[in-house]
């Protein structure tokens, strides 16, 4: 594990796989969009609005996955104080916030024609909105202190506290009666989605996963470079201070 957690090694590995990830992302979205918009049938109840599912569901999954990554990174940053963990946490939270926002917007656009409303305060929708605020809170706390280390530690604590929201989102549709329907994929008796819609969904989800990985690595690279820049500027400043005139 620690072999990959070395920043230098990470940068070399990242540089090597980044072009492949970008190509895979483009390919995945091309195929996914074709299947979602053209290569799949309308739903027997929902008609063409079912196509919103191919964006809504993967972005909701990514929003949850990103928070899981944020939680794990924050835990290892607090416990093992590894610098790469702090970088991963800082890199993932804007990505997670973007996916959460996308899931909320597409869900709203799906809810209006099907349910008859853009928004209701049921347990699923409310807990998902809370997820968005957790991401925003994490980003705000990171920048709230002059001392970067303090910001990172308090943001990590918030991220860990927010982990409790993940099971609530997942099981809200089972624990309470909600307007949102129960799970279609993660079910004991197999998915309740016809294969002709399941494969477009899985293709889109795969494209979203690769996209998430590509932008996460890009951001982690940037943050490492920014740390390097801060160190170099600090060193240059010290030189100026100590050099005789």
């Amino acid at each position: 594990m620690h072999r990959f957690a070395n920043p230098g090694r990470f940068l070399r590995l990242a540089n090597r796989i980044q072009p492949w990830l970008k190509a895979l992302t483009a390919l995945g979205f091309l195929l996914g969009l074709y299947l979602a918009l053209i290569g799949s049938p309308p739903d027997y109840q929902q008609g063409e609005t079912v196509r919103i599912m191919y964006i809504h569901v993967p972005s909701a999954w990514m929003a949850l996955l990103a928070y899981l990554i944020l939680g794990l990174a924050s835990a290892s940053a607090l416990i093992w104080r590894h610098p790469l963990a702090d970088i991963a946490a800082e890199a993932i939270s804007p990505i997670g916030a973007a996916f959460t926002l996308l899931a909320l917007i597409t869900g709203s656009l799906w809810g209006k024609p099907m349910w008859g409303t853009y928004w209701v305060w049921d347990a699923r929708l409310t807990s998902f909105l809370l997820l968005f605020f957790l991401y925003l809170g994490h980003m705000a706390l990171l920048g709230a202190f002059d001392d970067r280390g303090r910001g990172q530690r308090s943001a990590a604590v918030l991220a860990l506290v927010g982990l409790i929201n993940l099971p609530i989102i997942k099981y809200s549709v089972d624990w309470w009666n909600t307007l949102h329907q129960p799970a279609s994929i993660a079910r004991m008796d197999g998915p309740s989605i016809d294969p002709s819609m399941l494969w477009p969904l899985f293709t889109m989800a795969a494209a979203f996963h690769v996209f998430l990985l590509a932008v996460l690595i890009e951001r982690m690279r940037t943050l490492l470079l920014e740390a390097k820049l801060r160190n170099q500027r600090l060193a240059a400043f010290d030189r100026v201070q100590t050099e005789p005139f």
């Binding site: 049938p41 309308p42 739903d43 027997y44 109840q45 929902q46 079912v50 599912m53 099907m114 349910w115 008859g116 409303t117 209701v120 307007l179 329907q181 129960p182 799970a183 279609s184 079910r187 004991m188 008796d189 309740s192 989605i193 016809d194 002709s196 819609m197």
Partner: peptide, 29 residues
């Protein structure tokens, strides 16, 4: 407000299922 169930099917498949009598209403739901 309408509540949607968790089943997603193309119209032809739904029709065929109903015609063949294999339409399982609310199975495990």
């Amino acid at each position: 407000l309408a509540k949607h169930d968790e089943n997603y099917l193309p119209p032809e498949v739904a029709k065929a299922l109903k015609a063949s009598g294999r339409w399982q209403e609310g199975a495990g739901t």
